[in-house]
Each structure stands twice: as structure tokens, then as C-alpha cells.
């Protein structure tokens, strides 16, 4: 899933904001473009684990994912054994599931797009929908950003009127080098709805990439979805044919 991977991978190019100064609008845009754009035109392969903690269940999965550009991604479960081989393919805004124990693929019907993906706090719809902070939002320094010191900024991104997202605004905390630390999603009434926290930054192919992300819904305080990268390869050649229904079965 592009969403997951792109949220984590940050290009290593240092942001054009000098530490200790208040960044200009152009500099903010550059920072956000980095948050948006990580490897967008590139490809990735990642092995990761996902832990979902809800009031109802707790579940740990290991998965492998390939992505190429914005349009294509494929993710396949490796563990638990019961779900081994279950795969989700995204091409554009369409989703297919592959179900190994029945050896069948099934396009997710639009009525089910609002459902949770693999039980996590990410919906099927979140997977296929992607908006660019740098283009679909307006941005400014968030109030209180200055108190963070000179090493990081909190940028308040407000969706443009025509952007079809439910949020009132998103506060993105990013280091001066452009590595994201936190995204907080607010409703229009100013209620914090969910937080994504990034940590465990490692360098991959010369890029600073957080290897851990936690999604926390605020109306359910004891719930979270946590993703940890175990291995990450960027800018590797991947055939388009990998993102096909045929390949989904492999």
C-alpha cells in the first residue's frame, strides 16, 4: 500500500529550511512535497509487521509489499499461517483481494470500501485515496510550532475547499531535515480524531526513513495500529506485470 510506504519514506535531500529560522511558504511547500512525494515515481519493496490492537482483538501480521509509483501496489501476508498468502492488489482506485485457501480473487465492491483493511485502523478507502499535502492543502506554521525549538516544525495543512477529505486540518510535525515525526488529524470542530506517529529513523539508500509508524484513533484510546519495517529496498526495478491479477495469485 502506497499510503503506508509513502508515509514512511522520506527523501534524504535536506529541506531548504535552515535550522533555527522560520521557514518561508516555499520552504514549507518543499517540506510537504517531501512528505508527499517519497519515492512516488520510484518503487519499493518492504517486509514489515503490522500489529493491530483494538478493544475486540489484538492481531499481529507479517507482510511483504511492492509498490511502483502512485498507481500500483501489492501487499501479501506472510504470517499468521492461517492468512498466509492473502494479498491485496491496488491498481488506480480499484482493489482486489486474493484468498489463497479458496484460490480466488475478488474485486472489493464499492459498498465495502468503507470497511477496515485487514482489521486495522486503515479503511479500504484510505488505501486507494491519496491527496498531496503540498497541493491539495493550504499550509502555514501551526500555532505553538515555535515552542518545539529549532529542529522541527509543525505545519498546519488545511484542505482546499475542493479537496475531498473529511479532515478540518492536519498538523504535520517534520524535522528541519524533512523527516516526518507526527501527523495529527483534526475534525473541523477542532477535535483531534487520529494521530500518526513516526519513529525509528534509519537511512536506506541514502534516504532518512522512519521504520515505525503508529496510528492512533482518539475516540478509542486503547486502540492502535503499529507498523514496523524490517527490511526496505527503494528504487529497485519491478515489472509492471507484478501488479496484475495473475501475479496476485503467485
Amino acid at each position: 500500500m502506497y499510503f503506508i510506504v509513502s508515509s514512511l519514506i522520506i527523501l534524504s535531500t535536506p529541506a531548504p529550511a535552515a535550522a533555527g529560522t522560520v521557514p518561508t511558504s516555499d520552504q514549507l511547500k518543499a517540506l510537504l512535497t517531501q512528505v508527499d512525494d517519497n519515492g512516488r515515481s520510484n518503487s519499493s519493496h518492504v517486509v514489515m509487521s503490522m500489529r493491530v490492537q483494538t478493544k475486540r482483538f489484538s492481531r499481529k501480521m507479517k507482510m511483504e509489499s511492492w509498490s511502483k509509483g502512485k498507481e500500483h501496489s501489492l501487499i501479501r501476508l506472510m504470517d499468521p499461517p492461517k492468512d498466509r498468502g492473502v494479498a491485496t492488489l491496488k491498481v488506480g482506485d480499484k482493489l482486489w483481494n486474493y484468498l489463497p485457501n479458496t484460490d480466488r480473487t475478488m474485486r472489493v465492491p464499492s459498498a465495502m470500501m468503507s470497511g477496515a483493511w485487514m482489521g486495522s485502523h486503515v479503511s479500504n478507502d484510505d488505501l486507494v485515496r491519496e491527496y498531496r499535502l503540498s497541493e491539495d492543502y493550504t499550509y502555514a506554521m501551526a500555532p505553538g510550532s515555535a515552542s518545539l525549538g529549532s529542529e522541527r516544525y509543525t505545519i498546519r495543512c488545511t484542505p482546499k475547499p475542493e479537496t475531498p477529505v473529511v479532515w478540518g486540518h492536519i498538523d504535520v510535525t517534520v524535522t528541519a531535515k524533512g523527516v516526518p515525526e507526527k501527523q495529527e488529524f483534526y475534525s473541523e470542530k477542532g477535535k483531534k480524531v487520529r494521530t500518526m506517529t513516526y519513529s525509528d529513523v534509519k537511512e536506506v539508500s541514502g534516504i532518512q526513513v522512519p521504520h515505525k509508524m503508529v496510528i492512533q484513533p482518539h475516540d478509542k484510546p486503547n486502540e492502535l495500529t503499529e507498523m514496523v519495517f524490517h527490511s526496505l529496498k527503494l528504487n529497485i526495478p519491478i515489472e509492471d506485470s507484478r501488479f496484475s491479477l495473475q501475479a496476485l495469485r503467485d
Binding site: K94, P164, E188, K189
Partner: peptide, 18 residues
């Protein structure tokens, strides 16, 4: 006055608007 996002499905394509 609150914002909602409508997603419609047409010929298999999903389109969203606030």
C-alpha cells in the same frame, strides 16, 4: 454545516468530493 465526503461509484471508478 459540517463537512462530509461523498464517494460515488460509476462504472467501477470511485470519485470523491467534499
Amino acid at each position: 454545516g459540517d463537512k462530509v465526503v461523498l464517494t460515488v461509484s460509476y462504472r467501477g471508478e470511485l470519485q470523491a468530493l467534499p
